[in-house]
């Protein structure tokens, strides 16, 4: 079997100094293999969002090692980190984070534009990704003209369009109604079945239950690591 997508060793993240020191991550060890669908659970303040930011190369840990697709992220300079975020990771956020006043199609094209993909190919791949999430008929719509569920699906299309090794979702259903939540979770299930590696951060059992593996976090440490019954 090839390299794991994520290998984290004794990862810590400390905010503040002296008395005010807060250990958001207090030494996390985690290995996520390819094609895994993983949910990270925990109450707010458990360190799960910090873990997500470090895994997504939006932030760096204070100590420890993090290998993404076999590459030690701490050794990368700013430009290389941009490349990693662009090619290796697809983000899905709680608040969708689409670029305002920009059509769904252009939003999905944007990572490809930063990657330097030619315009024609970019358009083709973006349309395919939007089609994949079931929004082929909404490509010219602005984010403000789409429902929450639709916006989140555009965000998913934007995340998968570069064909990254890792999809990271931070509370992806936190801002959605139950119907849209079901849509998005179904989409995640399909993506997992296609063989994509997914890490979903959530505090909802109902969301976590869809994953093959659930990790529980508390006070900056992993306290549980269970394989879902459904997955077995």
């Amino acid at each position: 079997m090839s390299d794991p997508v994520i290998r984290v060793e004794r990862l810590t993240k400390v905010y503040g100094h002296g008395e005010a020191e807060v250990h958001a991550l207090a030494g996390v060890d985690l290995v996520v293999a390819q094609r895994e669908y993983l949910a990270v659970m925990g109450a707010s303040g458990s360190g799960k969002s910090t873990l997500m930011n470090v895994l997504g190369c939006l932030d760096t840990g204070s100590s420890g090692r993090y290998l993404l697709d076999g590459v030690d992220v701490r050794r990368l300079v700013d430009r290389q980190l941009s490349y990693v975020r662009n090619r290796k990771i697809g983000f899905i956020f709680q608040s969708f984070n689409l670029i305002p006043r920009t059509t769904a199609l252009r939003n999905v094209e944007l990572p490809l534009a930063y990657a330097g993909v030619p315009v024609a190919e970019r358009r083709e791949r973006a349309l395919a990704a939007l089609d994949r999430v079931g929004l082929a008929d909404r490509v010219k719509h602005l984010p403000s003209e789409l429902s929450g569920g639709q916006q989140q699906r555009v965000a998913v299309a934007r995340a998968i369009v570069t064909d990254p090794v890792l999809l990271l979702a931070d509370e992806p259903t936190g801002a959605l109604d139950s119907h849209s939540t079901a849509d998005v979770l179904a989409l995640f299930g399909e993506l997992a079945d296609e063989g994509r590696t997914l890490v979903v951060i959530t505090h909802e059992d109902a969301v976590a239950r869809h994953a093959q593996r659930i990790i529980g976090m508390s006070d900056g440490l992993i306290v549980s690591d269970t394989r879902s019954l459904e997955a077995v």
């Binding site: 997504g56 941009s82 975020r85 944007l110 930063y114 990657a115």
Partner: peptide, 16 residues
């Protein structure tokens, strides 16, 4: 600022 953050998260380089 938020838009800049999003753009960086999806791979915009400093130069972009």
């Amino acid at each position: 600022t938020r838009e800049i953050g999003i753009r960086k998260a999806i791979g915009a380089r400093r130069g972009d």
